[in-house]
Design a protein around this nucleic acid. Sequence first.
RNA 1: CGGGGCGUAGCGCAGGUGGCUAGCGCGUCUGUUUUGGGAGCAGAAGGUCGCAGGUUCAAGUCCUGCCGCCCCGACCA
Length: 567
Amino acid sequence: MRYSEYFIPTLKEVPTEAVVPSHQLMLRAGLVRQVSAGVFSWLPLGFRVLNKVINILREEMNAIGGQEFLLPALNPIEIWEQTGRVEAMGDVIFHIKNREGLVLAPTHEEIIAFHAKQHIQSYKDLPQIWYQIQTKFRNEPRPKSGVLRCRQFIMKDSYSLDTTWEGLDESYNKHLEAYKKIFTRCKLNFFIVGASSGAMGGSKSQEFMIESDAGEDVCAIAPSGYAANLEVATSSLPPVGRKNHCPPIEEFPTPNAKTIDDLIEQFGFDENSLAKSVIYIIDSEPVLILMRGNDELNETKLQAAFGTNKFRPATPEELLEITGANAGSIGPVNLKSNIKVVADSLLKDANSLVSGANKDGYHLKNIDFLRDCKIDAYYDLRTVREGEPCPISGTPIKIVKAIELGHIFKLGTKYSEALGATFLDKDGIQKPIIMGSYGIGVERIIACFIEQNHDENGIIWDYPLSPFDIHLISINVKSELVKEYSEKIYTSLTQANYEVLYDDRDETAGVKFNDADLIGIPIQIIVGEKNLKNGLVEIKFRKNNQRELVAEKELLNWLKEKIPTKS
RNA sequence: CGGGGCGUAGCGCAGGUGGCUAGCGCGUCUGUUUUGGGAGCAGAAGGUCGCAGGUUCAAGUCCUGCCGCCCCGACCA
């Protein structure tokens, strides 16, 4: 490809709207342009990279027996109503205004189940793995960080259809392995975490992450190999437990203590002897939740424990009405109204605890959960913190920000049941198909690669994602010698099946070098008069800036050794 | 949806207590000299100052409303 004829609008300056490095570089190197918030166009250079990613996805999905579909982005809303997701996803779904009954699909479990219902009838028709690489539409309230969170984006989404739970395990593991291969081939430094299934439903789920400050997820990782999304992460902290002697419960004044920290400071309590109370309204019912000391309630865990996402913290007025006190003096004993009380597992059957007295300005000490109050249930509700011992072998947990590249779910029968996608088993019994769902954000692969591979001059591509194999730079096109050799090299490289970006522009050397570093193709071949007089061309490796002089005649042989076979 | 910032030439920005023909850098075009790390000189083109309304003799500048974009938060398969 001749640069002079190719559309690569590089930018010298960093666009102000771009904050994260990958976004800045994707704009500067001319890979993408923004059209509106969360909506991007892929320019020719970027589209080449996108297609390389898509090829890898396709190869690895085909390798596990996946069959490629292209499902519609326009979906009848009825299908989405049948699974209850019009309500569950709410504003995320785009609704078509001038044609009643159509929505833009944010994902495709429903359509897959719809086709399964149409044509899967017998256990003999299963298992199946169906996938597509297609545009998704989600009405994100706040798109951000370039292509990392968009209203329109490309997803590789696949779905497994099985007759048994063991079959689902097998399909799930096939995807797990395929995803590892995909991200490894894309040269991404990734890790896998246990994750929450959230509104998708289903049992097990795992996410593929890369560590990045630009990420929106937070993960707990440990040297033992433990890795979990903070939403579900646990640690092996010992429970508070019971003391041998617990005197009778005792009220004491705490006029200036509103927080756990105040209590520790003013009265010298051990943080572990304090029980913090918060009130949530869960499915319209108030629930008192007890947490150890300053432990933070994890709302994802709360959602899992109660099986609903309809909850919110109580308002100050509600607090007073429910407990008889204001925030800071609330506790499980002497509640004004008879409400459900749950506690974090660390507080299981504990005693010698301090908590609010449900009377402003007073707390109670020597509380015994077995003696003085009724705890309806214990759940793991706390958010893990940096340095806590990991559940595998007690190594200290590190908390990192991460970008989610992919997510795999064991869905189960939620969608097949809702849409009536069933099959007849060997005994002639009708059963719902057992589904799995597996997604990869295609653009995120590119953004994540750039997050991990750039320097102050630009992107540092590697094979196989690099938009071209070789960047051929002709210095001073007005020199007949340079021009003649550049053209000759360009022709021979192209004939040898290399993808070459040939900078034949009438620009100064500096402009060409800077653009080459910005675009970041791994190998630059620099053709200049000085070296050519000795029959040499210069090779520059973008990655480490190392240079080598190679005889022009030896170039093809040299490249054979240096450029890995393209996959 | 709450909080903050921004909107002036293709890009980056200045002008903002109202006042003459709206500037600067980069880029673009023409000519010329250059040619191994974003060239020099000379000339030129390019703007509904986000949109609408208002105040005024006079609005990029002041007022009101709206729209758009970015950031923080909420939300997010």
